[in-house]
């Protein structure tokens, strides 16, 4: 028994030292370089890619993905996944939009409502995953359907029409930026900065890497695995709620049931392209932010170059495969070493 426990503790300590993230990772530098090259090339070959009127809306579009990406990075670092974020956006967005229309609630209250709903849904995910010991993809796939049902009930077979511009602070229009910086993107960057600090310097943050590296070892090393996991999913839910406000603000005056759909895959794509290992134990929020910007750059770039829309899928797919491939190669060489 003693030998059984001693080995994981050692490996936990080892993995703790090994997995502490460097200040900038290689993948981040590569991503940044790719981004710079893409922006320069697009700046040359399109009339207006590098103008405020183009970059501003692009960053607004990136913001909700990057924001949820912070939570998703935490989740994936713990070797989990959350495929219910799109449905959480839907529930938060439709409830908030209905309250905006019915009671004309102020922006602060709208944000609060959305974040509280997102957190509650995230808490359900977290509790089921931490204490149910079923793989997160199964749990969140289940709750995604549950949330979808909940959202459709709130929609009540009709769209939400005539949403007031209460949340324009997060929007694409003039009220959505200060000195040319879109508020929603600034919020996403702040969240990324806070998460970067948390993962690097806070004990609870570093624990997440240990949990993802080897959950049993982490538990034996005295880490409170279950509460940590619950919080990770609560944070993801809360960020999905905040992102729902951005989705309302950047959408039209009408909200339909397609709101949020596909966002879970966009977020996971950003996280994976950002260099976070889908196997857990390694990852960076800065990479996620860059990944989110890269994906939207590709999609917008394809449109602005006048290329067929479908090429966007091809390029994003290639980026994901390259990122995952690099990760797996890295993992294999490490195991061999």
């Amino acid at each position: 028994m003693t030998t059984d426990t001693a080995a994981p503790v050692r490996s936990a300590q080892l993995s703790l030292r090994r997995i502490l993230p460097p200040i900038v990772t290689g993948q981040e530098i590569v991503l940044l370089a790719v981004l710079v090259v893409l922006w320069v090339v697009l700046g040359i070959f399109t009339p207006a890619f590098l103008t405020p009127g183009s970059i501003g809306p692009l960053l607004v579009q990136v913001a909700p993905i990057a924001l949820i990406g912070v939570g998703m990075t935490f989740v994936i670092i713990t070797a989990g996944i959350d495929v219910s974020v799109a449905a959480m956006i839907m529930v938060s967005a439709v409830t908030t939009a209905r309250m905006l229309v019915a009671f004309d609630i102020p922006a602060i209250l709208a944000v609060l409502v959305a974040v509280v709903i997102g957190s509650a849904l995230g808490a359900l995910n977290g509790l089921l995953i931490a204490y149910g010991r079923v793989h997160p993809i199964i749990i969140t796939f289940g709750t995604a359907n549950l949330f979808q049902w909940l959202g459709l009930r709130v929609f009540d077979s009709s769209t939400v029409n005539g949403i007031p511009s209460t949340l324009e602070f997060f929007g694409r229009g003039g009220a959505g930026s200060t000195f040319g910086v879109p508020h929603s993107f600034a919020i996403a960057v702040l969240a990324v900065a806070a998460a970067w600090w948390f993962l690097r310097y806070a004990k609870a943050g570093r624990n997440l890497y240990a949990i993802g590296g080897n959950q049993n070892a982490a538990r034996l090393a005295g880490i409170k695995v279950q509460p940590r996991l619950v919080w990770v999913y609560v944070i993801t839910g809360a960020l999905a709620g905040l992102a729902a406000c951005m989705v309302i603000a950047t959408g039209t005056a009408t909200l339909d049931q397609s709101v949020g759909s596909g966002k879970e895959l966009q977020v996971i794509a950003a996280v994976v392209i950002g260099g976070t290992s889908i196997l857990g134990g390694r990852g960076s929020v800065v990479g996620t932010l860059l990944g989110a910007i890269l994906v939207q750059t590709v999609v917008s770039g394809v449109t602005q170059l006048g290329w067929p829309t479908q090429l966007g899928f091809l390029f994003v797919g290639i980026f994901i495969l390259i990122a995952v491939g690099t990760d797996l190669i890295r993992e294999r060489t490490r195991r061999r070493a």
Partner: peptide, 11 residues
């Protein structure tokens, strides 16, 4: 909406 924005920028 984003694509429409991109189109206005590129044309």
């Amino acid at each position: 909406t984003q694509m429409a924005t991109d189109l206005m920028n590129s044309h």
